[in-house]
Amino acid sequence: MPIKSYLAHPHSGMKEELVLALSQFSECDIFPSENKDVVILITETATTDEDDKLTEKIQRISSLKLLAMVSGFNSPN
C-alpha cells in the first residue's frame, strides 16, 4: 500500500493548470501552497505497480516542471 508525498513544481505561472491536472487522479490528494509556486502531492495506491504507473502519468503532465519525492511509506495494509 504505497503512500508517497511529493513537492510538485509547476512551470512558471501554471500552478492552476497543474492543480487541475493532478485533481483528475483519484489516487492523489493535493495541497497547493497559498503563496508560493509549489503543490504538495500525496499519492496512495494499492500496489507498487500501480504506484509506478501513476508516477509515469503524473510525469507526463505538461504544466509540471519538477516532481520531487519527499517521503515514501509502504504501509502493509
Binding site: L7, I42, E44, V70, S75
Partner: peptide, 16 residues
C-alpha cells in the same frame, strides 16, 4: 493509512 498519509503530508510541508 490516514495516519501515514498525514505523516507524508507533514514531511512534505517541512521540506517545502
Amino acid at each position: 493509512r490516514k495516519f501515514v498519509k498525514q505523516m507524508a503530508l507533514l514531511s512534505a510541508m517541512s521540506a517545502a
